[in-house]
């Protein structure tokens, strides 16, 4: 208790000179309390589980994921996530990190779509999904780096450009598109400040998934975020790891280019 109080007093005394205080972005500054709490982000527990799972020999082929190529060579994790989505020759398509982990769980470890480690895409308050844990660990190896998704392959560029079209595409029973909530700064839904796609500094923080979502009590992924957006928009349900989901991720990552990723993050 004393130790915690000490921590808070240190944090409070340091508050006046937190760099984000200089920002005029309410999305960033109104979350000051979150940034204070980030010193003890519960996502670290998920990260540690992911680290163990990554090195553990698992599946019908009794192999670890250490040989998985996330775009920078087999086993290279540092900086891999901020350079995704990316076109992978072996798979013949553009993949985000979550899809790539599944690909390696299939090819290296021999798991199938029906096996629990792949079938279970999201965590609940009573169970942390293996996939989320692995994703959190691998993403954390890009913490503090700048988003820099590759645009060398024509499919990477087409995917990004189609993602931009989807971002502005209004449909569904409420006429919403991503643009409805994420194109202006200082806008809120209820009390939540919304990040704008045109403000790279706040956008870079906003797309920093995985994040421990306080309201959910678990770590969530970018696939979980984009699924929730389509659900709230009253459009059709978006499938996990689908081409459309990766197109949106490709556009949103490109919009954060050159700005720092917080991995894992802490969100409302």
């Amino acid at each position: 208790m004393l130790r915690r109080l000490l921590w808070y007093s240190i944090l409070l005394s340091g508050l006046a000179c937190v760099p984000a205080a200089a920002s005029d972005s309410p999305y960033l500054t109104k979350r000051q309390q979150l940034m204070m709490l980030a010193e003890s982000n519960p996502a670290e527990l998920t990260l540690w589980k992911g680290e163990e799972l990554f090195h553990e020999k698992r599946g019908p082929k009794n192999a670890s994921l250490e040989a998985c190529d996330f775009g920078l060579g087999p086993g290279v994790l540092e900086g891999a996530y901020v350079q995704m989505p990316r076109y992978f020759e072996d798979a013949g398509r553009v993949m985000d990190l979550e899809s790539r982990i599944i690909y390696c769980m299939k090819t290296l470890q021999g798991f199938t779509e029906e096996d629990a480690p792949i079938a279970r895409k999201h965590s609940s308050t009573t169970h942390t999904a293996d996939l989320v844990a692995l994703y959190t660990y691998i993403a954390s190896q890009s913490d503090g780096m700048k988003w820099d998704p590759p645009m060398d392959h024509p499919m990477e560029r087409l995917t990004r450009d189609a993602g931009e079209v989807l971002f502005y595409r209004r449909a569904g029973k409420m006429d919403f598109g991503c643009v409805s909530c994420h194109s202006e700064q200082r806008k809120r839904i209820r009390l939540s400040y919304l990040p704008s796609v045109h403000q790279p500094a706040e956008w870079a923080k906003a797309i920093s998934w995985p994040a421990y979502r306080i309201g959910h009590g678990v770590v969530r992924s970018s696939q979980h975020r984009v699924r929730g957006c389509y659900w709230q928009m009253r459009q059709a349900g978006l499938n996990f790891g689908s081409e459309a989901s990766i197109a949106i991720l490709s556009f949103w990552t490109d919009q954060a280019r050159g700005h720092v990723a917080t991995l894992p993050d802490l969100k409302r």
Binding site: S242, E243, A244
Partner: peptide
């Protein structure tokens, strides 16, 4: 983008 919405099995 239209292909992704209607033909790719994404939704």
């Amino acid at each position: 983008a239209e292909y992704l919405v209607f033909e790719s099995g994404s939704f």
